[in-house]
Computed example of a mutant assay.
Amino acid sequence: MYNKFISYLNGLLASPLNPEEIKIIKEVFKPKTLLKNQYFLQQGEICKLTGFIVKGAIKQYSLDEKGKEKVLGLLIDNWWVGDRESMLKNTPSSYYIQAYQRSELLIFTKEDFEEHLINQPFILEARRILFERQSLQLLKRLYATNMLPAKQRIQELENCYPDFFQKFPQHLIASYLGLTKETYSRIKSNMLKNQ
């Protein structure tokens, strides 16, 4: 479990983690298993944990006024999970974060982060890179949701995140793309006919 996380970090950083940094990681990050449908966080709770998904599939969603799920995030291997705003501001979360399939994570608390990680150079470098990537991904997603036709949104997702289609069912992918499952199914069917 730790080897995969260490490889992930080494892929981000300019130089590989040294033995002391690896020791800190193993002391601070704790293994956690989420079973299918188990919550990492529920709406109204204050987020106390952040996790790195070693293996699995997790959905982040809110409920609309009719109680229907609106998927805001689909999270898979080598992605991070948590509600940063809730954790930083100590405020109730607006989201549910739930395992779609059994998921293996490495988690840490805000207190552990502040006590052991916040000033570590490797963490500062990794956070900078991850924040840049996340900002770019959010802008790209906003653009796609607001500007691209449905077919192109599906194609973009297939190109960028093909693993989503192995880990999540069509209705979750449709919701993530801002489509009804019927619209998604119709467009996908037409795409397959035209191949």
Rank of each mutant, 00 (worst) to 15 (best):
M1V: 11
M1C: 07
G11V: 11
L12I: 09
A14H: 15
P16E: 03
N18A: 00
P19K: 01
E21Q: 14
I22V: 15
K23D: 08
I25V: 15
E27Q: 12
K32P: 00
K32A: 00
L41A: 13
Q42W: 07
G44W: 10
K48M: 06
L49W: 11
G51N: 03
V54G: 00
I58L: 06
I58M: 05
K59H: 09
K59T: 02
D64R: 04
E69A: 11
E69K: 06
V71C: 09
I76K: 15
I76N: 10
W79T: 07
E85Q: 07
E85L: 10
M87S: 14
L88F: 10
T91Y: 06
P92K: 10
S93D: 05
Y96R: 00
Y96W: 10
Y100K: 02
Q101L: 07
L105G: 00
L106Q: 03
E111Q: 14
D112I: 08
D112E: 05
I123M: 11
F131A: 09
F131E: 13
R133N: 13
Q134K: 13
Q134I: 13
K140Y: 03
R141A: 05
L142R: 15
Y143D: 10
Y143W: 13
Y143P: 03
Y143G: 00
A144F: 01
T145H: 12
A150C: 09
L157I: 02
E158Y: 04
P162F: 04
D163T: 09
P169Q: 14
Q170K: 13
Q170M: 10
A174P: 03
Y176T: 03
T183K: 10
R186P: 10
R186K: 13
K188H: 07
K188S: 04
M191I: 14
K193P: 07
Q195S: 10
